[in-house]
Design a protein around this nucleic acid. Sequence first.
DNA 1: AATCCACGGGAACAGCAGGCAG
DNA 2: CTGCCTGCTGTTCCCGTGGATT
Length: 341
Amino acid sequence: MIVDERVLSEAFVPSEVVHRHEEISLLSEAVEPLVSGGRADPAFCFGPTGVGKTCIARYTMDRLTEKRPAIRVAYVNCWQAYTRYRVLYSLLETVDRAYDVHRSTAKDELFGRLRSADDAPIVAILDEVDQLEESAVLYDIHRLPHVSVVLVANREEELFARFDDRVRSRFRAGTRVSFDRYGADELVAILAERARQGLEPDSVSDRQLRRIADAAAGDARVAIGILRSAATRASGRGADHLTDELLDAAIPDARRAIRRKTLENLPDHQRILYDVIDEHGEIDPGGLYEAYENRVETPKTRRTVRNYLTKMAHYDLVEAVGENRGRTYQVIEPNARERTH
DNA sequence: AATCCACGGGAACAGCAGGCAG
DNA sequence: CTGCCTGCTGTTCCCGTGGATT
């Protein structure tokens, strides 16, 4: 029943984008100078999760390289590359200058390499850029005349709050493209297109697509996740179309699956912290550390645990309620609506 | 007023991977 | 191959800040 699994995956960039034409043309305009050999101002994509920011950024840059093939596009996800070193490394990697770069290459060496890779313009898409711990790397990149950046993040205010002063002033100019949540009709159109490309004809009805769209509440990632999960189950039992029962199972699944995946990727100690918080529902920092301490053989220090907790709060896994003395921690439920991440 | 508790920045430190000389 | 060196990363130590609490 599934024809092409990639079409239903999260990283898939469709060759034709449904909706978002306005956003695409704004973004294309911003990078247009590159076509004629100029330099583009920084561009920003802002919006909540699952509204197509990353997808559109990639799509638009793909179209750009069609116009001018010499342009190299580097995609960097700042969840993984959150230090200056990793960002530079990741950029070099996609630009193909990472050949003999190794772990022990000095940062300035990496930067120098990127600087000398100026035979063709580079567009750096920095995804989830609000996860960057050293925003100064943006300033470094900005100084390179042959590198243009597209920054992808959730909210402008929070992003700029994390910047240091130099970066803030440098990036004040630039094109902002903001993405709103999809309406149900738009989601249905997106799903229909994915189903057309990824599934056998008639394996899912319009009414079912509508149901998925409603359940996803404007989040295309969740919507596609539901479709994928339902389709996988269906083909697992040899069915040639989706049944409503399969959908019933897939809908609550999709959000939880995303959560489970992030939890699985969490290092052990952080997982345990999460579990403790989850079991208690609400717990004060002292009690949390105590419980954690009893559960592992070699506990990390309090300071390290604080680092973990701030990190986990960033992932939107846990939440600190209150200030100073009366502070407590609790988990954020995956189905919490309208998260402010 | 003194003490407690929590937070987070910054410096120091340890572990590790890879380069390189012998 | 071995041992030393370099430099990133994660962890810890130290400490100032600020709001409770006694």
